[in-house]
Design a protein around this nucleic acid. Structure first.
Lengths: 248, 248
DNA sequence: CGAAATCTTGAGTATAATCAAAAACGGTGG
DNA sequence: CCACCGTTTTTGATTATACTCAAGATTTCG
């Protein structure tokens, strides 16, 4: 079951390399990081609020989301996770998980023990810094989401998450021709935006009518990136992408 | 201008010590951490979105808030900062600030250069971990705020932030007799909750009418903690306080 | 004491929620 | 290949929460 995911296909290594060039030692350490790979069906919890995990999960393929439940049973998705993300990396320093992570689509997930993570962090300070940085970008995304949910209306709120997803997916090579696969239901968007499913549906219809997006099943196409960006008041600075990966 | 803030009054050291016991070396390093202390008037920006700071600020006394502005000019406060917080610690690893920090009240702020922070992190891995942990708790607070703004109605949303503030203030010794000083205007609460000032005013009136809170100027008193907690669906787990500081 | 900021009140409106049901879609098995 | 089932999307009618605009009261602070 233990496997060292082929480096060229390990989206984590690619991500770190977009920030700085790894030394041979560092690369070696990352490539041999012990990882238990597992395929998880869609709509399954990977970890749950209240868990005290002893490992973190690297999303290798598929879509997942980080969410919380209110006492009243309402769900709020606080971010979408895409390949290369480690949605519960915070559990390395925070004992109890304060959120759950669930798959949207079928996912391939690599579980890495905290022991292994601590070990690589001790031996390779720059990798530790890269992990820390990843969690800081997560926080930046949460900040932007508070703003999105708190201060934007239907259309811009929806447009904004779509922009964020497009930019992040492009950075990991999952956008082609201004189009990408988004296996996210309208109900899930509703939970991410603080809306109801019905309202998401009506907003999407309006966006299609105005030519901001085109959809075909789970396929999303953006005919005019600048218009969508404007509609969502989208500025990718908060994603802290290097190498101009944020460019249209 | 350089000053090593008296350790007993340095809320950062107290905060770290609530998680683990510092060695003599570590304590020494923290106490001598070079820090430029400055008093800043109320309603002033400490740092601004777009800045590329070479230092971070430790809030020594007073209230501040982290906020973002939308393209439309609306403001969203994404968290309140209280003594012991380092609101822009993320700038240690993220070049460009994606948010601003402003004072609510007059504040005493200690500026610490990134150089000094990097140095102490290299020499004292446990302090590095403690800093990382602080930023992870910030992220947990942002997650909770997304949920609060996205999925709670007027009363519970307001009650929730008040609960959070009370618990965090109690942890740094700023709550006495179920009461504390909150130099935060209704307009600022509005920006934190995604409401208008008018609506905040009406919600607060209802909360006073129901006996959930008592206010007197900037003084907030909570007559029945359990009722407020229930009204806000408040569970302090996400604050990751140790030593039962979250207890009523 | 006076000006500015903050808080409060009222009336009318709008955005999004709720409830309910129908249509379309996706996958499964016969 | 088609019928069937569960899920997701769509539509319609009604309601509610929170916004807008505007003005008056109160507090704060110089």
């Amino acid at each position: 079951m233990h496997s060292s995911f082929h480096p060229d296909h390990n989206p984590l290594i690619r991500k770190i390399e977009s920030v700085f060039t790894l030394t041979e030692d560092e690369r070696q350490a990352l490539e041999t990081l012990p990882m238990q790979v597992q395929v998880i069906k869609d709509r399954q919890d990977i970890v749950r609020e209240g868990d005290r995990p002893s490992r973190s999960c690297l999303l290798l393929s598929g879509f997942a989301c980080t969410y919380k439940l209110t006492a009243g049973g309402k769900r709020q998705i606080v971010s979408f996770n895409i390949p290369g993300d480690i949605p519960d990396l915070q559990s390395l320093h925070l004992k109890v998980l304060d959120n759950s992570v669930a798959t949207n689509s079928s996912c391939s997930v690599g579980f890495i023990t905290h022991e292994a993570l601590r070990d690589i962090c001790t031996r390779h300070p720059r990798i530790a810094a890269a992990f820390w940085r990843e969690t800081l970008i997560d926080a930046a995304i949460f900040r932007e989401w508070v703003t999105n949910v708190g201060r934007r209306d239907g259309m811009s709120r929806m447009a904004h998450v779509l922009c964020e997803l497009m930019v992040r997916l492009r950075a990991v090579g999952l956008v082609e021709d201004h189009a990408c696969d988004l296996p996210i239901t309208q109900g899930e968007f509703a939970d991410a935006l603080g809306f109801t499913t019905v309202h998401v549906n009506r907003v999407l219809q309006q966006m299609r009518a105005e030519g901001l997006i085109e959809t075909n099943g789970t396929r999303l196409k953006v005919p005019d990136w600048n218009r969508l960006k404007e509609a969502g008041e989208f500025d990718p600075t908060y994603l802290h992408l290097e190498n101009g990966q944020a460019a249209a």
